[in-house]
Design a protein around this nucleic acid. Structure first.
Lengths: 249, 249
DNA sequence: TAGTGGTCTAGACCACTCG
DNA sequence: GAGTGGTCTAGACCACTAG
């Protein structure tokens, strides 16, 4: 474990400590299931209070990087668990992390009137104007998924195809252009059969199985700001990590 | 918000407070996006330190019950989010919560020799003896999924069909009989086509789409203790909730 | 029994939001 | 500027694990 020092800057101390610990793990200084120094030792070494150490520990624990056992100690989570981030990345980030090159092919950027179903989900009136963006997502130039996103834009604001083509990440663009600030999302997954259009766009046979994922993205104030339907080919894998106990810090 | 009092018992005070708050929400005393009293008010009212209040708040926040915004306050999460538990329940619990009657039909309980793939996942030698339990999972007596679980049992210990039939929950049985104590799981989902056997057991056509979910369950010490392959029919939906920001308490 | 994480307190100050 | 949540401290005691 390195000898960085905790500074008095704008980033909280517990965060700095967490980064130091995570760094040590990523560099292989600490390996799977190895014990970390005790909280009291860390507090002394980095000259912070034990409570600050505990915040750093909990922060990494939430992210599946380490885990602690009452009375035994705190340990490095095995790589299998560590790799599952639990915090959703955008498709681009996620793909990059898996070692692939993300890409997209934009099918349509248009204004549509909200149907009753989507209006209900987004909390707007049916008929309200929404922007719809349809894209084929690519990994290493091969199509793996269809994204069909619906979201309201502030009055008078427009978004065009060229902008999306440039940014690669729709979320980033929306965050910069409007007040779009996703804080949380709920997802619902099931299996489905590809219809004729899905099949054509994804280069698979009609009726082939696809992973159908619906997502509602919520702002910091928990107002729904986006509804998105995604369909992925069978080779695309969706990872998740789940705490089974109701453990607290 | 009710007037229960925090007791000095074995359950931690922050937990008692969290239960009081959750209770108020479930009873409808607090509704979607409504503001909770401030942390300082809660601390005074329930005669605990503000830090204890913050623990209760964080505890509920992790569970998607409430959320807090810096400088604004703490609010009740909308029902849409609140319903997603993020902590995995067993199939039985989950189904019950969705208002269905869970059931199972046991296909086989047997000892098998670990294949190389499964041995690797469970961290045992290939050929090591594993117990395999295959079941059809039912909701309201209709088949919705196939579970195929592999796990090592302590030497000499056996489990039989009748026992599983009685308990309804395999996990509960294993927890009681052996030291089985799941702490975390990693899952990997994708779409697949039902093979002839899947189709027969689930009452669907061969080639129909199924949701294929692989799970590795880990003990408190993060040793893999179970590998399970699940296949669900298209009508079965898998819910999840995701924090998009890296927010800390 | 020694050492570890878990809970709890009281008080301080900072950062953000909103009228 | 008043009020909210966020960070931090120092110290105490409890609960659990292991030799």
């Amino acid at each position: 474990m390195a000898t960085e020092r905790i500074q008095t800057t704008s980033t909280p101390r517990y965060r700095q400590l967490a980064d130091i610990i995570r760094g040590a793990i990523e560099q292989g200084l600490l390996t799977d299931n190895q014990a970390l120094p005790s909280e009291r030792e860390l507090a002394e070494k980095y000259e912070v209070s034990r409570d600050t150490v505990r915040k750093a520990v909990r922060y990494l624990e939430e992210r599946g990087v380490i885990y602690s056992d009452h009375g035994r100690g705190t340990f490095v989570a095995p790589a299998l668990v560590r790799r599952m981030s639990r915090f959703i990345d955008s498709f681009s980030q996620d793909t990059a992390q898996r070692g692939g090159v993300p890409g997209q092919q934009i099918l349509a950027v248009e204004s549509v009137a909200a149907s009753m179903g989507i209006a209900g989900l987004l909390g707007v009136e049916p008929g309200h104007s929404l922007t719809r963006v349809r894209r084929v997502r690519l990994i290493d130039d091969a199509p793996v998924g269809l994204h069909d996103a619906y979201f309201p834009l502030p009055r008078g604001m427009k978004i065009d195809r060229a902008e999306i083509e440039q940014t690669q990440s729709l979320y980033k663009l929306l965050t910069e252009k409007s007040g779009f600030a996703p804080a949380e999302a709920v997802e619902n997954l099931c299996a489905a059969a590809a219809d004729a259009e899905d099949a054509r766009l994804l280069g698979i046979a009609e009726g082939s199985p696809v992973l159908l994922c619906e997502r509602i993205t919520l702002s910091e104030r928990r107002e729904p700001i986006e509804y998105c339907v995604m369909k992925y080919v069978a080779s695309y894998r969706y990872n998740t990590r789940i705490a089974k106990t109701s453990g607290m810090t």
